[in-house]
Simulated assay, not measured.
Amino acid sequence: MTRVAVVGLGMMGLTHLNVYRSLSNVTIAAICDADADRLSGETTATGNVEGTADASVKSLPAEVRRCSDLNEVIGAADVDVVDICLPTHLHVRFGKQVLLAGQHLIVEKPLARNSTDADELAQAARSAKGLAFVGQCMRFWPGWAWLKDAVNDGRYGKVLAATFRRVVDHPKGAFYENGDLCGGALLDLHIHDTDFVHYLFGMPKSVNSFGYSKNTNEPDHVVTRYLYDHVPLVVAEGGWAMSDGFPFSMSYNLNFENATVDFDINREQSLRICEVGKPIEYPEVDAKMGYDLQLAYFIDCIEKQRKPETVTLENAADTIRIVEAEAESIKTGSAVSLG
């Protein structure tokens, strides 16, 4: 039985907590938050996807330790895994402490506020006793994981065009209003699709990005073209600059030589395949979310004592490098090479 402590009880902390409660091979040893009302469950965060942040702190068993100080969790004898769902700029500091203490580490995405910090955390993980994992959940999300397989095995021929879109209204709260801390929608939201583009096609040769700030001092809405030799057109749009009440939307459309496939989370039959010479198909998609599957995957890695391969800290650091190039492209108005 793997004993987990969840640190930070915002939207993602509660989402992770909910997943752990569904896993038969996990015990929740502790929860930690400096906010007394969150720790007691008097106030709760809300998620932007149905089914997230549903966990109730109040209904946790009495034996689950409630801590307001992270030092009560890091190095604790009753905690095997520390799951850090703290604000992005705190990841490197506390992530390194967890690894130095010999515990396993989960860090919510993005791995760090910048690629320098991300590299520092990845370097610490290489020599650590415990395993380390970053929550780039789209690599596990049903529909997206299916797409990765479809691209890899070439079942529809070569990819001619790939378009991704992820937009919503602005999440409220001091963290999300401070671009210096959260990095704007570019780093906090759009990074999901940048990472999946990276996962599908590798590091792009360059990026050409356009965007603007609305809610923070960093890009809150962005459209990027990723340049590859082997795929003619790869584009992603992301942002949280929509008017209040605009529902969360994530989708993709890929045009292959022999088929067009698309996914829309807000459509009843979310995955659609239009293959040449065949009727339109709507394959059933697993109802589980990427959060469920990624955490189950990492717990399995711990039990089998093998390093995660679907996503690594090095992968996550490289994704942040791409995002930083996107930010530079928006500022300069020019394409930015990634070497």
Rank of each mutant, 00 (worst) to 15 (best):
D149Q: 06
A150M: 07
A150R: 02
V151T: 05
V151P: 01
V151D: 02
N152R: 07
N152Y: 04
N152W: 01
N152M: 03
D153M: 04
D153N: 15
G154P: 06
G154I: 01
G154A: 06
R155T: 10
Y156V: 07
L160T: 12
A161I: 03
A162K: 00
A162I: 02
A162R: 01
F164K: 03
F164W: 12
R165C: 11
R165P: 03
R166P: 00
V168K: 00
D169N: 12
H170Q: 12
K172L: 13
G173N: 01
G173T: 02
F175K: 00
Y176W: 15
Y176F: 15
E177T: 06
N178W: 04
D180V: 08
D180H: 12
L181F: 13
G183T: 07
G184R: 01
G184F: 05
L186W: 10
L186I: 08
L186F: 09
L187G: 03
D188F: 11
D188M: 09
L189G: 08
I191Y: 13
H192F: 09
D193V: 02
T194K: 00
T194G: 04
T194L: 06
D195T: 08
F196S: 11
F196K: 02
F196L: 13
V197F: 08
V197L: 02
H198E: 14
H198W: 15
Y199F: 12
Y199H: 14
Y199W: 10
L200T: 06
L200S: 08
F201T: 10
F201M: 06
G202V: 08
M203C: 12
M203E: 15
P204G: 07
S206F: 08
V207L: 00
V207C: 05
S209H: 10
G211C: 03
Y212F: 14
Y212N: 10
K214C: 09
T216M: 05
T216P: 04
N217W: 03
N217R: 00
E218Q: 13
E218L: 02
D220S: 03
H221W: 13
H221N: 12
H221K: 05
V222M: 04
